[in-house]
Design a protein around this nucleic acid. Structure first.
Lengths: 352, 352
DNA sequence: TTGAAAGCGCTAACAT
DNA sequence: ATGTTAGCGCTTTCAA
């Protein structure tokens, strides 16, 4: 029968626990936060009181004083300038690519053991970008992990200008003082070229990604380089935009100009799948007549018939590294940006 | 040169704005929160001061007093009892299905205009479930949107027992006093049956989902019902588990026992895709020899050759309704749970 | 219509 | 090793 009992149903506070354990709030706080210098007996008493009262620390209160939220913003960003024209189609498209699921997996696996959580945000319009910035400025998250779907995305600039901690997936289209993780795209393309050559392909072509995207350009450069070094310097190129449809169209063009080609490197799996369909429609067997290699090892690659030989990015590892880069940073606000480059892996299935 | 100027770089607070505008904190708060009864001239002055100082309200502080976080937990939940055995594979699988992307789309589109955001959580182990519960109990989110991947998921029970607001996607495996949205699965199956019949199919079979899942059972019941009403009461059934592989295996079984079948209803698209592959391998043309209908209208449905005729759930609408159910609830804690059932839509493409 | 003041629940100096 | 105390930045009575 303590005085001033809490109304039933109200969430218990530190105060309640302290009273129940017969100690001060500070001591309870120390025990809850695992700060040393607390008598074991008292620790035990406090733990008892915690479980009796069903205490759970209030995040807002804690965050208010620690200035940390144990939350990070995971933002998927586009380059759009348009108004909120086509709400939803952006997010729908983003998730249509299993790549994003792998990012989430990597992020969650890193964050969770640390008691942290990701808040999902989309920044496909300038208004949405402002909201992301103000969300961070409100101290609602300890930093941002940014995955851009387009080159020249203004968000990285906005965020760094505001002095907010952030890390990018992939090198920014426009250089910025910001940390990022990336893949060695050229090496990935080189792997594909080597595999095609080893299979005995003599007339190879490639379906590139959008060339204003560093990844698109580098995969193309790497492939062309490697082929040139092997003596084929006139590799036909058709540009696509990373969609299956664009892959189909590109394949049609390639086939029209070079009916006797026997190997294709597509800059991503979706386009490779499109290429396979078109090849088959034109009576070519994959891989007997034409070998096809994709890029990304998305689920499309294994679901496809025949399963796609493809270049795999260690997306989960890269996502985890983003977290590390974001959270392990010394408090120094002006330390230089860091970038970490990962090596790709060739996954050999049946298409090549 | 006011006294006690804030150190440069520090985030401005209400106090700073108040000083700059020559009013009290309370007034600034009123303006910022759009509370009426503030002199227009003063309002203007405050707005000026806000933009001059670059003020952004601190969420933690606000949340501490309002007891709202403007955040909801979006939790993807499994039934696992195992320890953290296979970290990551759960999340990877979840996102392999584009369904989840549509849920996110619906949720974000509802939340964003309201200044709210989803925190992503996974609850595939009992430990992870406890973490979700304690996250909510800490007041870190205003409620939970739960998407279970398995029947008899314990999470809905845990959450409601703790008196925490939550809404489910799909009817819970074990009945619980909790609101949910769901699809009229039987009607979806009926749509498929009608379409197959209209095409003139005479020997129809079905690949069901796992029968311990309400959705699996209801799609099967609905289909069987509809076929019986059309005079075919001996429809062959092969059970799958919603994966492409299980669809392939099921189709093999069906074909072995009923080589002359001319129509298949699969309880989801992935299994329908698997069925198409097997049919083709057995020399059957789709849809000329065998018509195939899937369920979900996932991206697999449109990417597939031929594009799949399928039953579409209005997932985005359903997700938005979940938010509504969660957030519009009157404060009454013991009000009855509500459920909203949505009607499916037949999307006719080429497979049937 | 505006201001003064009392907290929200917690952590972290500082004292003891 | 423990307690006291002063805020963190905000909203919200209550007075004026």
């Amino acid at each position: 029968m303590t005085d001033a009992p809490r109304p039933a149903g109200a969430t218990p506070t530190l105060e309640d626990v302290a009273r129940a354990a017969g100690v001060s709030r500070a001591t309870v706080s120390r025990v809850v936060n695992g700060v040393r210098n607390v008598d074991p007996a008292i620790q035990e008493a406090v733990r008892q009181a915690v479980s009796v009262t069903g205490y759970a620390p209030n995040r807002a209160a804690r965050s208010l004083v620690t200035r940390r939220t144990e939350t990070i913003a995971l933002v998927v960003s586009g380059a759009g300038v348009e108004a909120d024209a086509d709400e939803g189609s952006f997010t729908a498209q983003v998730f249509a690519d299993p790549f994003f699921g792998r990012v989430v997996t990597g992020v969650v696996n890193y964050l969770r053991p640390r008691g942290m959580h990701p808040v999902l945000m989309f920044a496909e319009t300038s208004r949405a970008r402002d909201e992301v910035v103000s969300y961070l400025r409100q101290g609602s998250a300890d930093g941002a992990l940014i995955v851009s779907t387009h080159a020249r995305d203004p968000l990285p600039g906005l965020v760094t200008d505001a002095g907010l901690p952030a890390v990018l997936y992939a090198r920014p289209g426009r250089p910025a003082r910001i940390s990022y993780v990336d893949l060695d795209h050229r090496e990935g393309a080189r792997l594909a070229a080597a595999h095609l050559a080893a299979r005995g392909c003599r007339q190879v072509a490639t379906i590139s990604g959008p060339l204003d995207l560093p990844a698109g350009q580098e995969r193309l450069d790497g492939f062309l380089d490697a082929m040139a070094r092997r003596g084929q310097s006139d590799v036909p190129v058709a540009e696509g935009v990373f969609t299956q449809e664009s892959g189909e169209a590109a394949m049609e063009r390639l086939l029209a100009g070079h009916p006797s080609l026997d190997g294709v490197f597509a800059a991503n799996d979706l386009m490779a799948v499109g290429a396979c369909h078109v090849l088959r429609e034109h009576g070519r067997r994959v891989p007997e007549d034409v070998a096809v290699i994709g890029f990304d090892d998305s689920s499309a690659a294994s679901a496809c018939r025949p399963p796609l030989t493809t270049v795999r990015q260690p997306v989960e590892d890269m996502a985890a590294e983003m977290c590390r880069l974001l959270l392990d940073r010394p408090a120094a606000p002006d330390r230089p940006a860091t970038s970490v480059i990962f090596e790709p892996l060739l996954v050999v299935r049946h298409s090549a």
